[in-house]
Write a protein that binds this DNA or RNA. Structure first.
Length: 889
DNA sequence: AACGTCACG
DNA sequence: ACGTACGTGACGTTG
């Protein structure tokens, strides 16, 4: 027989635990004894049976089909006491944290879910063990399935096989149902045949085989009284049998993967145990974690602290083609992070830890290895390693496989790509996690404070995980045809992003400060004016307080509500602006405060003292669509739309007087991508002849000649074009243009009538998304959209818009990523001094040396326009300037 | 930590 | 009838 599964009757077991253990509560009075008993049981089961799969079934409060057929079903049974009832949700939370599958469905009892799963497992040829306190389950026993019934003490289980059931009860598992049909069951209020007890029932079933057979041959019943009793209760017997029969065809989706036994979320489990005050379990867990760490045999780590040993290591590494590594660095900024240690692993499960704190000489000793492109490197978040090495004068080559990025391509909507989480998710095993090593919040320490034995163990685990993961992830990438995207785009891009971070963007600190002072003056003045008009002082930044002032004190009409109170966003304020002079002051105040806090103070805070530059982080595993994101600070949302904000761009300047900024942006890249994937002839024509796309769209939507399109029509058409890219809806367009839904729908109909190919594309995008469960981009980047199958209209609609938008936004992201790699490569190859320093989704900024202007312009334009060949031309516009502001005129 | 708001493509 | 445009990140307030 194959692998083993444990199926637990959750209600039955928690009941046994509750009544079997003395009441136990936390300090706050929450009852915990049943949960405690349950967990101990679980641990025991894990230890004794080591199942590959597990599931726990629960009853629901809702009436089952048995109640529907029989009002008195389970009537008279006492309600679950509250002390037990309150433990059910805790138990479920615990199971979730332990990553244990659970089932519950309205209308069915746990037994029926178990029966259905048992049948499923039999088909899958699993060895199935059902754990319950209820002997009704004995009917499920078979060659594949054993029933484990809890004994009095809870800790021991009685094992029933078909043979042992026959031995003990003299009937087969199937006949067990007949038995109950005859005997009835007082606890479930199943009637059976009055006057027939266990002995008689067994005798009858042994004689006839089943209730049905018995009914057919009642004349063969010798005992006259018994025969009469049975003959007058035939229907009741059949009915009782039906009630006692466990269903095996409950409509539930089952898949073995979901049932797989996984390692628990250690951290959350510990947290939960603490909350429940399960001290003995906490002890046990900590001990087992300890022993896990000890399990990494000290002999598997070689500590390197002498120069000669480094030489030996180099010799060994030079002979290998592949290494797995992790560097440990300390220091806030990318530019000054010292490497204090390194774990490195080759093909065997054996790691070296180089202790640079003790060793004389630094990482530079290993420069030849890191710069050898024939030694392939695998790591997790390699950008960090690249940055640390670069600071030490080493340019990493042969960066072959980054496990975080591989997982990102497989699951771009994951919230975390932490190595330990991924390791658990893909390999079902646990490893230490960085946060528990370093602590969090103000208690966080640096790697410098970590004992090197501990650090080397952690490094060993990381290398080991990365190595195991690579094998699995490579196969997955291959399966989803993502290898090309991974190896030719995402992996090479890491270095480009690292270089952008390392270079940074120079800012004029003084100019920022003086802009800040100006803003401060204006903010103070506005505050005074607002307080005067309001008649009192309040915190204008607080939407709650502002709402009170506007809608209670000043009695202005509330237009919109949020979850927590009145909405005071810009749309609301604009609608109110004519009703009270305070409104415009507030709008202005908000504008200034935003600029001051986010773009003046926020930027000043992150200027690197050593370089006078801002070194933003560019994140490659954040967005669902394939775009990159920028943090600390976000340089992708520096103001431009309003002049005052745009002034901020004046502080973004080149490194020194030898450079200028070259800003190159794609013109209408998303609509061009749409033309390409939809193959719409009209849209293609518009771009091939380089027309103003919004004017063309206006002409089509409003049925006017191109030369008679008004500016109002053009801007409406622009909104329509945006809407198309976002996955249009009449509501959204109406909202945006301030028109009725009906009018908006008219625009959309006209649009789709003229751009029929776009219409077809939109329909197919949704259809394909539903069929496959995901959508793809030009480079086969994939995004799963589970929302598409939701029965909730809103969620499903969101899924549909996502299906329409992601291929467009994601393909544009693909294109600019390729362009970045090529521009970076070309600048490098030609040994130019100019550097790519920023990307803003459809725009690249290259700090260009004055001697290289023409060459760089040519490179950037060519590589961007030719990054990926579409069936429409890509168009790039470029501007040179002395500041970012100047490049936008 | 969640929410509301607002900055960008 | 449902009630939203797609994708991000930072800030200040509030609970």
């Amino acid at each position: 027989m194959g692998e083993r599964i444990i199926i637990i009757d959750g209600n039955s077991l928690i009941n046994r635990a509750f009544y079997g253990l003395p009441p136990l509560t936390t300090k706050e009075g929450t009852y915990t004894n049943a949960v405690y008993g349950f967990v101990n049981m679980l641990y025991k089961i894990y230890e004794d049976y080591q199942p590959e799969y597990i599931s726990v079934a629960f009853d629901r409060k809702a009436p089952t089909f048995r109640h529907m057929e029989y009002d008195a079903y389970k009537a008279g049974r006492k309600r679950m006491p509250d002390e037990l009832g309150q433990q059910l949700p805790i138990l479920k939370e615990l199971l979730d944290v332990m990553h244990i599958h659970r089932m519950e469905i309205d209308g069915f009892e746990a037994d029926d879910l178990i029966g259905t799963l048992v049948k499923y497992c039999e088909e899958k040829n699993l060895e199935t063990l059902v754990v319950t306190g209820d002997r009704d389950a004995l009917q499920l026993a078979s060659d594949h399935t054993k029933i484990l019934i809890t004994k009095k003490g809870m800790t021991d289980l009685e094992i029933y096989t078909p043979e042992s059931i026959i031995e003990r009860y003299e009937v087969t598992p199937q006949q067990f149902i007949d038995l109950k049909g005859l005997m009835g069951d007082s606890s479930d209020n199943i009637p059976g045949v009055p006057g027939v007890g266990e002995k008689t029932a067994i005798k009858l079933i042994k004689q006839f085989g089943s209730i049905e057979e018995m009914i057919r041959h009642t004349e063969e019943i010798q005992n006259q009284k018994l025969r009469e009793k049975i003959e007058s209760n035939i229907e009741q017997a059949i009915f009782s049998k039906r009630l006692a029969t466990i269903k095996t065809d409950v409509p539930i989706d089952l898949s073995l993967t979901a049932l797989q036994r996984e390692a628990p979320n250690q951290e959350k489990l510990l947290e939960l145990f603490r909350r429940l005050e399960f001290h003995s379990l906490i002890q046990k867990m900590i001990k087992s974690e300890d022993s896990q760490e000890k399990a990494i045999d000290r002999a598997k780590i070689h500590m390197i602290e002498k120069y000669e040993d480094v030489q030996k290591l180099i010799n060994v590494v030079m002979l290998s083609k592949h290494l797995y590594f992790r560097l440990f660095g300390v220091g806030e900024n990318v530019r000054d992070r010292e490497i204090i240690g390194m774990s490195i692993m080759l093909e065997e499960d054996f790691s070296y830890y180089v202790d640079f704190k003790v060793l004389k000489g630094s990482i530079e000793l290993l420069k030849d290895i890191f710069e050898d492109e024939n030694i392939l490197k695998t790591g997790h978040n390699i950008k960090n390693e690249i940055l640390m090495l670069r600071k030490h004068g080493i340019s990493l080559a042969g960066a072959d496989f980054d496990t975080s990025i591989a997982v990102y391509l497989l699951e771009p909507t994951r919230t975390s790509y932490e190595i330990d989480e991924i390791y658990t998710a893909y390999l079902g095993k646990n490893m230490s996690n960085e946060e528990s090593l370093l602590g969090k919040g103000k208690n966080r320490v640096t790697f410098m404070q970590i004992d090197r034995d501990l650090l080397s163990k952690y490094g060993h685990q990381v290398c080991h995980a990365v190595k195991d993961l690579k094998k699995i992830l490579e196969a997955e990438l291959e399966k989803l045809e993502l290898k090309k995207l991974f190896h030719e785009v995402e992996m090479p891009l890491i270095k480009v992003l690292a270089d952008m971070e390392y270079e940074g963007f120079r800012v004029d600190h003084q100019m920022l400060s003086s802009l800040g002072k100006e803003l401060n003056g204006k903010i103070e003045q506005l505050m005074a004016e607002i307080y005067a008009m309001a008649g009192e002082q309040f915190n204008i930044n607080s939407t709650k307080q502002l709402g009170d002032i506007l809608f209670e004190r000043l009695k202005l009409p509330a237009i919109k509500k949020t979850k927590t109170g009145y909405s005071t966003n810009i749309e609301v304020l604009e609608k109110l602006s004519k009703k009270h002079p305070i409104i415009n002051k507030i709008i202005e105040y908000r504008h200034y405060v935003k600029l001051k806090s986010t773009y003046i103070d926020g930027l000043i805070d992150v200027i690197n003292k050593g370089t006078n530059k801002i070194h933003s982080s560019f994140n490659q595993t954040v967005t669902a669509t394939g775009r990159i994101s920028s943090t600390e600070p976000n340089l992708q949302n520096i103001p431009i739309r309003l002049e005052l904000g745009r002034e901020i761009r004046k502080v973004f300047i080149p490194t020194d007087e030898n450079y200028l900024l070259l800003d190159a942006d794609y013109s209408q890249i998303e609509l061009r991508v749409l033309a390409h994937i939809s193959k719409d002839p009209e849209l293609i024509e518009a771009f091939e002849t380089d027309q103003d796309i919004h004017t063309i769209t206006a002409s089509k939507v409003f049925n006017v000649p191109v030369d008679q399109v008004t500016s109002y029509q053009r801007s409406s058409a622009k909104a329509v074009n945006f809407g198309i890219v976002y996955g249009i809806s009449d509501f959204g367009l109406a909202e945006n243009l301030g028109i009725t839904k009906k009018e908006a729908q008219k625009y959309i109909d006209e649009y789709f009538d003229k751009y029929k190919g776009v219409k077809t594309y939109m329909e197919q995008a949704v259809e394909n998304g539903k069929k496959n469960g995901y959508v793809t981009t030009i480079l086969n980047r994939r995004r799963y959209i589970p929302e598409l199958t939701s029965s909730n209209f809103n969620i499903r609609s969101f899924g549909e818009r996502t299906a329409m938008n992601t291929p467009i936004q994601g393909s544009a992201a693909d294109i600019i990523k390729v362009a970045m790699i090529r521009v970076h490569e070309e600048l490098d190859k030609r040994k130019l001094q100019s550097r790519l320093i920023l990307q803003v989704h459809d725009e690249l900024i290259v700090e260009t040396h004055k001697d290289e202007i023409d060459e760089v312009k040519q490179i950037v334009k060519r590589e961007m326009e030719e990054a990926i060949q579409l069936n429409v031309p890509l168009k790039v516009e470029m501007h040179l300037g002395k500041s970012w502001y100047d490049t936008k005129k």
